[in-house]
């Protein structure tokens, strides 16, 4: 094997890994885009909603006989999808009880139109979830690993039997699920009455009221969908990576980077944004030390916001 072939192989391997993890990041970002993009609410606790989803899926998997009924191959995915309604309800309740107090009409006249309040409120929620998680779940690492995560498909070999790319089956299936969910969500948003009312509420809340849309409820629904989508992404991530109560912190920036990159207000753009983040993260490992992987994401994020704050897929420019 020549040096060039080694280089090519590691490049292709990083590319494949980036695409797979990027699909999950993309799903995560779409969840945040529903909240940040539609309602312009900075939700600091989005990563912790994801963490909660991971634990709920974990307990459904281990505690409700799912593992026994569906086995360890299918079981994790069943548990992850069963978790979604719980997180939907959780998001709905959080919005109803807390978020609604610092958004919309009540924020008129508040400092920074309530942004201060939103930031700090969600920071408080994040602290409660992280530390409450530590109390309830302990701080040791757990996972919903499937046996698939330790086997891989081999693509290739190409170029004279030397270069081949391995796709981890667990991550591959997670990526496929991510893309499928995105497609479903896209259909929901673009084709249904509900989706149309959500987009209308995001576009022009006042006119939405005039056509008979309950804007408060639309926002609440968007918040709940966003929460459960990100949680779903977390669950899929947990089939490959172990997690702990503070896992949310690691992904909050990934999510915001993806949403900004995709263009605020564009739900589908957020998916491509997350994909780009996954690729940058994996490809950067070719030239930058592993430990700096996350630092790379942050620097990349800074470059995006400073150079192209409207994102790459932004359709609606940020309203001032």
């Amino acid at each position: 094997m020549t040096e060039g072939q080694i280089l090519l192989e590691s490049f292709l391997q990083a590319l494949a890994a980036g695409l797979l993890i990027g699909a999950i990041y993309g799903l995560m970002c779409v969840g945040l885009a529903m909240i940040f993009g539609i309602m312009r609410v900075i939700n600091f606790a989005q990563g912790d909603f994801m963490m909660l989803g991971m634990y709920v899926a974990f307990f459904i998997f281990t505690g409700f006989g799912i593992q026994g009924v569906f086995g360890s191959y299918v079981g994790p995915y069943v548990a992850i999808f069963l978790m979604v309604p719980f997180l939907f309800a959780f998001g709905y309740a959080i919005h109803r009880l807390l978020i609604t107090r610092v958004t919309g009409i009540r924020t008129v006249g508040m400092e920074g139109e309530g942004h201060y309040a939103q930031l700090v409120l969600t920071l408080g929620i994040a602290l409660v979830l992280q530390n409450g998680g530590q109390i309830l779940f302990g701080s040791q690492l757990v996972s919903i690993r499937t046996p698939l995560s330790s086997v891989a498909w081999e693509l290739g070999p190409f170029w004279g039997d030397f270069v081949s790319v391995f796709l981890n089956k667990g991550r591959g299936i997670a990526a496929i699920f991510s893309v499928a969910v995105i497609l479903g969500l896209w259909l929901l948003i673009s084709r249904t009455r509900l989706g149309r009312s959500l987009r209308a509420a995001a576009d022009n809340p006042e006119a939405s009221t005039y056509v008979g849309i309950d804007v408060d409820r639309a926002y609440r629904t968007a918040f709940a969908i966003g929460t459960s989508i990100t949680a779903l992404a977390g669950g899929l991530l947990a089939t490959n990576y172990p997690f702990h109560p503070f896992v949310g912190l690691e992904y909050v920036i990934v999510m915001y980077a993806g949403v900004v990159l995709g263009g605020i207000g564009s739900t589908i753009g957020a998916f491509w944004g997350g994909m780009a983040i996954g690729l940058v993260q994996q490809l950067s490992t070719l030239v930058i030390p592993m430990q700096l992987q996350n630092a790379t994401i942050f620097v990349f994020f800074l470059l995006i916001v400073v150079l192209r704050p409207q994102g790459f897929f932004g359709r609606i420019s940020e309203r001032t």
């Binding site: 107090r101 700090v120 408080g124 929620i125 602290l127 530390n131 409450g132 530590q134 109390i135």
Partner: peptide, 18 residues
């Protein structure tokens, strides 16, 4: 109860904001 500090802290923040 590890983390009780964070929980109370978080709750204090939530309450003050409301």
């Amino acid at each position: 109860i590890p983390g009780i500090q964070g929980v109370i802290y978080g709750l204090a923040i939530i309450i003050i904001i409301i």
